[in-house]
């Protein structure tokens, strides 16, 4: 049942965006998010829309799948909109009892909606075109300067990639334990919230024991294969910037520059 779960939500396709270095995509997403908060006029949002639209076209991912990511944040979007709409002071447009909608509130809500939607869409394009492992690699590489202040960068990224490998295994195990306990008469369905939490104990105890056992085995297997930390370690798939990455950085730089210029001029 859990066999087909994909972490993150990588969508395999053959596009320029898929082939970009994960670091480029990561930095690019950050730059895009900064840009949409720098833009604050309608022409600015038009530029952002054109940019986002062309990225979506380049990614060769069906737009339906990209916008699926918005479903998850729909409630958040709604609440943000309402608060902005109702709680921004300014020139009143409408009065409904104690509720007042102002002109400033309306524009603010509009801006927030555009920003949130663009933010979620932009970052889901990154996760759709990059495998979780590539992302981990990118983070390790981008965080490397932090090593100087003794942040265990290699260890963090190793932990992340091992977690990614074991999540499906532990999910399957959870499923197995659950079925085994149900067969022994355990009840995971009925009762109130507290009762339900209590019912989880026969599931969690074996799961934790097994997870620790696996961790122990894995540590031994890693040692047996000469793992001795990040020192003197080489990489099988080192990240290397290509021509297209430099071009992408160029485009991103230009996009950010446009955002700043438009902000300064208006």
């Amino acid at each position: 049942m859990f066999k087909d779960i994909t972490l993150g939500q990588y969508y395999p396709a053959d596009s320029v965006l898929h082939r970009l270095d994960p670091r480029t995509k990561f930095v690019g997403t950050l730059a895009f998010i900064i840009a949409i908060f720098v833009f604050h006029t309608i022409p600015g949002y038009l530029v952002a829309t054109v940019f986002l639209g062309s990225v979506i076209l380049l990614s060769r991912i069906p737009p339906k799948i990209i916008f699926k990511g918005l479903k998850g944040v729909f409630m958040l979007l709604l609440v943000t909109l309402l608060f902005n709409l109702l709680l921004t002071p300014g020139e009143p447009l409408m009065q409904l009892g104690f509720l007042r909608i102002t002109r400033e509130g309306l524009t603010m809500a509009g801006k927030m909606a555009i920003r949130l939607i663009y933010l979620v869409t932009g970052s889901s394009i990154m996760t759709l075109t990059t495998t979780p492992n590539q992302l981990t690699n990118a983070m390790e590489s981008l965080m490397r300067p932090l090593k100087r202040i003794h942040v265990p960068v290699h260890e963090i990224s190793m932990m992340m990639s091992i977690a990614l490998r074991f999540i499906p295994i532990l999910m399957e195990e959870t499923d197995k334990i659950m079925k085994a306990q149900i067969a022994r008469g355990a009840d995971f369905e009925s009762g109130g919230l507290i009762q339900k939490v209590k019912n989880m104990i026969p599931l969690l105890v074996p799961l934790f024991i097994s997870a620790f056992r696996r961790a122990n085995d894995l540590a031994m297997a890693m040692e047996a294969r000469c793992y001795h930390g990040g020192e003197n370690r080489t990489q099988m798939k080192p990240l290397r910037y290509d021509m297209r990455d430099y071009i992408a950085y160029g485009i991103l730089g230009g996009f950010l520059l446009v955002a700043v210029i438009m902000r300064v001029l208006s």
């Binding site: 696996r214 890693m222 370690r233 099988m236």
Partner: peptide, 21 residues
């Protein structure tokens, strides 16, 4: 299951040589 480290077969096979430098 408990001795395969990477999420892709070839990366797992490369784990030992990576550690050896």
């Amino acid at each position: 299951d408990n001795q395969i480290i990477a999420s892709v077969v070839e990366e797992d096979v490369g784990f030992g040589p990576e550690n050896m430098g």
